[in-house]
Design a protein around this nucleic acid. Structure first.
Lengths: 357, 357
DNA sequence: TACCTCGATGTTTACGCAAACATCGAGTGT
DNA sequence: ACACTCGATGTTTGCGTAAACATCGAGGTA
């Protein structure tokens, strides 16, 4: 059998009126040009808004476009221009509020600049998967990439970034290799600790995020540094995995320590768990123990009691990411260095002076 | 400081040597072909994995590809094939857990099928914005669209879907026009009410979501229907906007009604607010009042007390969306009808028999 | 009037890829 | 030995667009 078609069956004659699944070969400039009685180039000029087309002609062309339902083929444009007007976003998970909201801001601001976002999900945070994502990236139609993740892993992947594709990273210490945009974790943590010490607490306990997280590292470091600067003892760190469940375990542990009157928890979800643990152990918040979180998630104000926490401006992080990445695309010059977005402490009802303080 | 990369320092001699912002005119098949000493078509065959290339030749080509860092230009491929292998996702917001997780599942499953996701954010849920999104869609390089939203608005936008672009909708009643994939809201609500009645509560109060939401409508309808079927009184509905804050207000209201011993809240965030309101008013959960939520967000188990709630399988919703949309792309035949994803009740500690029951 | 300018529009070409078709040469059958 | 087959590879072509260049005609200038 002459294997002319993929399945050896009779190949359809493309001219016949079969609906051709998938192929939607739409209206092209040539079709519009024919109807309007002009050349395809004139249609192109109208379509791109170039000057040098007389009004009457322009009107004719626009009418023809409307009549045929013409829409420019972005693949052809991309081919011609050598750019896709697309930004890839590599991320591990959307389950964290921060990632979702950053992504949303990125998408919005990219859209404003005429760019669209392509999502490149990386199943699990392993080197393999990440390299796979970067490899796939090579075949993807993107002009630039924003990476949202914990970035020890980025090292090995460095080589894999296709040449000419610009990179911005969120939540990383890769500022020596890429442009990094991040919340000012250290300052946020300092505000939290400062607030608790100012209320009169002798020192502040800490429930940290996972060891691999740079955000967690920096929050913990700032907490420790601040206590040392003020000459306060630094209690042993409890460590969670960002989940409320892990916060609950840490909270049970802390509840057993009568000295503990103030806790800085590295995120709101774990803080929720801490609150429940303290509640379960009969320790009143804020009367017996004060708790400060980090993130200011939407629900923080509805916790029992409403949580004092460090507000992160994810929208601003997203905005800066897009700004930086498009700047690189425009100039063609890769950037390095870190851009910090400031935080602010939102004081609610989970903090108070220490008992008898 | 030399880092010899594209820093403005020694640029690779790409013709004139100017860094050409944006243009990254990479390695093409022709370049690979030249180096490997074969024709471009042979490179193409290797690149697409077509048979009919002898091993030695293939090796040569692959070596040349590696050496030059070749990666296929997806714009050219898209132009040639007439398809983009891209699915657009239109959504209003990622701030709801459900949307984020559905999106994540969509992205993952699309990736498995060799498709990528393009995000089309719609700022505000207004007809104008939505029409704008659909219009932009026309210029976008997508083969199909998944719409995640409340869909009264979809009516007007119907006409705007470009021909040949297939559509799947989440959370809608547009099943007569599009394929709709959704959680089985009604069944979830029935399970919640059933559970509370079985515990011995005389009837069940309801805190509903916003009037415009189809999910909210269906949950409320199922709640009402179930009570009527069982011959129970149907208390007046309290209505919130999905936020914990609105749940708190509804909760304060309910706390004032001593008859109220069981509440079905239309989502977990509002349930969080209800819990806090009951706590603030000194009504113990579940001793005095039982509360059931909807969604089973990650934190639900850490509420005070841990929340009994209806678990939604967002991952499955996303999977079914991709499945349906790709089926339409493959066959070229648009589908209608509704696909329901089942729910299950997760019983935790916020429900118990009524006081004195 | 002859010549030039300049604006409006048309024609050619290339972007990178892969289907369709062409070629070439080594084996196969008679 | 000759035609013939078939697999491996090369050549041509076109996808839709827009830059670069070509043309054409109206109006201005000497």
């Amino acid at each position: 059998m002459s294997r002319s078609g993929p399945d050896g069956a009779t190949q359809e004659p493309t001219g016949a009126g079969r609906p051709r699944a998938g192929r939607r070969r739409g209206v092209s400039m040539a079709d519009v040009a024919r109807l309007a009685g002009v050349s395809a180039q004139t249609v192109s000029r109208v379509s791109t808004g170039h000057p040098g087309v007389v009004d009457s002609t322009r009107e004719q062309v626009l009418a023809a476009m409307r009549q045929l339902g013409y829409r420019p083929n972005s693949a052809a444009r991309a081919l011609k221009y050598g750019e896709f007007r697309t930004i890839g976003v590599i991320l591990f998970t959307l389950s964290s509020t921060g990632n979702s909201r950053t992504l949303e801001a990125i998408a919005t601001h990219a859209a404003d600049a005429g760019y669209v976002i392509t999502l490149i999900p990386v199943g699990a945070p392993t080197q393999d998967r990440l390299l796979g994502a970067f490899t796939r990236l090579g075949e993807l139609a993107v002009d630039a990439v924003i990476v949202i993740m914990e970035v020890h892993l980025l090292d090995a992947a460095t080589v894999a970034v296709p040449p000419g594709v610009h990179v911005v990273v969120v939540d990383s210490d890769a500022g020596d290799r890429y442009r990094v945009v991040d919340t000012d974790q250290a300052d946020g943590a300092r505000q939290a600790v400062h607030h608790l010490l100012d209320l009169g607490h002798r020192t502040v306990w800490h429930v940290a995020g996972p060891r691999e997280s740079f955000a967690a590292q920096r929050r913990a470091l700032a907490w420790r540094t601040m206590l040392q600067e003020r000459g306060r003892p630094t209690p042993q760190v409890r460590r969670g995995d960002w989940s409320a469940e892990s916060g609950y375990r840490a909270g049970l542990d802390l509840a057993g320590d009568p000295d503990c009157t103030a806790v800085f928890v590295a995120n709101d979800q774990m803080a929720l768990g801490v609150l429940r643990a303290l509640h379960d152990r009969g320790r009143s918040v804020p009367r017996d123990v004060s708790v400060v979180g980090f993130d200011d998630i939407a629900d923080a104000g509805a916790f029992i009691p409403p949580l004092t926490t460090v507000h992160q401006d994810f929208a601003e992080v997203g905005r800066r990411c897009v700004e930086a990445v498009l700047r690189q695309v425009r100039t063609g010059v890769p950037e390095t260095g870190t851009t910090l977005v400031s935080t602010r402490l939102v004081v609610r009802e989970s903090t108070a002076p220490p008992p008898g303080g």
